[in-house]
Amino acid sequence: MGRAPSLKTDPAGGVKPPVWDPLVRLSHWLVALAVLVNGLIDKPGAALHVGLGWAVLAIVLVRLGWGFVGPATARFASFPPAPFKALSHLGGLARRQRPREYPSHNPAGAMMVYTLWALLLTVTLTGLVMTGGRSPMTIAADQAAVNSGDWSALVKQAPAEDDEGDSDGGKIVGAIHETAANLLLILAALHVGGVVVESRALGRNLVRPMLGRGKA
């Protein structure tokens, strides 16, 4: 494996706060918007819900690829998963100690990021299984046909749905999908809370760099 990417330091020798590149910023906010819409607003199984799921899967895969070839702050080598360091970081915050600056995500933030990515992949992949990999356009067409009184699209799917084994498997996949989606919303709320706490502890606004505005 190659060396970790070099990271800039300030004139005093400390680590500069991260400056997130456009792809990281765009993927962050697009995924956040999609999660809010699908989790709190949109109807499960609707064409928009499925379409956003496909979009999130694509965005996450692009972001994961960016973790190998993107700039230093975006690379996995800059924020490796370190559970014990994450606990130490959180313990310092609980004791109201000023946390050290990191060139990318701090250890607790890194663990949150990896967990959120895992949940996003779980939600989107189980969603694909639940919809049989159908595209949003196909689902929209089926729903339009049903609304117009043409139930043939659903009738064609009936034999597969009547199979007991498939039904049990579908229930398991559905339970995993729902559980992961709920955990995703809970962790997203904790993530926002963590950003607020860390911002106060550091004395700077951690949201500004994610908006492309640099250090507060």
Results as ranks from 00 to 15, higher is better:
residue 146 V to Y: 13
residue 3 R to I: 10
residue 19 V to N: 13
residue 24 V to F: 04
residue 85 K to M: 01
residue 141 A to L: 08
residue 51 G to Y: 06
residue 160 A to D: 05
residue 170 G to F: 03
residue 27 S to A: 15
residue 112 M to K: 03
residue 154 L to D: 03
residue 68 F to V: 09
residue 112 M to N: 06
residue 46 A to G: 15
residue 192 V to R: 04
residue 124 T to Q: 03
residue 150 D to K: 03
residue 61 L to M: 10
residue 108 A to F: 03
residue 183 L to E: 12
residue 152 S to C: 06
residue 172 I to D: 03
residue 119 L to N: 12
residue 118 A to F: 05
residue 83 P to A: 09
residue 4 A to K: 11
residue 205 N to I: 12
residue 150 D to Q: 05
residue 187 L to T: 11
residue 200 R to G: 13
residue 109 G to C: 10
residue 173 V to W: 07
residue 89 H to Y: 02
residue 73 T to W: 03
residue 87 L to R: 13
residue 19 V to G: 11
residue 106 N to F: 04
residue 191 H to N: 09
residue 39 G to W: 06
residue 102 Y to R: 11
residue 208 R to T: 15
residue 214 G to D: 13
residue 67 G to P: 03
residue 170 G to A: 08
residue 123 V to E: 07
residue 173 V to K: 07
residue 76 F to V: 05
residue 58 A to T: 14
residue 116 L to S: 08
residue 57 L to M: 14
residue 95 R to E: 11
residue 70 G to T: 03
residue 108 A to Q: 04
residue 149 G to E: 06
residue 7 L to Y: 02
residue 107 P to S: 01
residue 141 A to W: 07
residue 146 V to W: 14
residue 211 L to I: 10
residue 134 R to Q: 15
residue 90 L to K: 04
residue 24 V to D: 09
residue 92 G to M: 02
residue 18 P to F: 05
residue 98 R to G: 08
residue 2 G to H: 09
residue 64 L to A: 08
residue 7 L to Q: 08
residue 170 G to M: 07
residue 197 V to H: 02
residue 191 H to T: 09
residue 96 R to D: 02
residue 65 G to Q: 00
residue 178 E to I: 14
residue 201 A to K: 07
residue 11 P to V: 10
residue 123 V to T: 11
residue 44 P to T: 07
residue 183 L to H: 10
residue 136 P to I: 12
residue 10 D to E: 12
residue 116 L to P: 07
residue 10 D to G: 11
residue 140 A to H: 01
residue 59 I to R: 05
residue 179 T to G: 09
residue 170 G to I: 09
residue 45 G to N: 00
residue 7 L to W: 01
residue 43 K to S: 01
residue 65 G to I: 07
residue 18 P to N: 02
residue 93 L to T: 12
residue 7 L to V: 14
residue 140 A to K: 00
residue 171 K to A: 14
residue 77 A to D: 13
residue 76 F to I: 03
residue 124 T to R: 00
residue 93 L to A: 09
residue 12 A to D: 09
residue 105 H to K: 00
residue 144 A to G: 13
residue 142 D to C: 01
residue 211 L to F: 14
residue 116 L to N: 11
residue 32 A to T: 13
residue 33 L to Q: 09
residue 77 A to M: 08
residue 145 A to H: 08
residue 30 L to R: 08
residue 1 M to Y: 06
residue 69 V to P: 02
residue 111 M to E: 11
residue 72 A to K: 00
residue 159 P to Y: 04
residue 101 E to A: 13
residue 176 I to N: 06
residue 127 G to E: 04
residue 148 S to R: 02
residue 156 K to S: 13
residue 160 A to C: 03
residue 214 G to F: 04
residue 64 L to S: 02
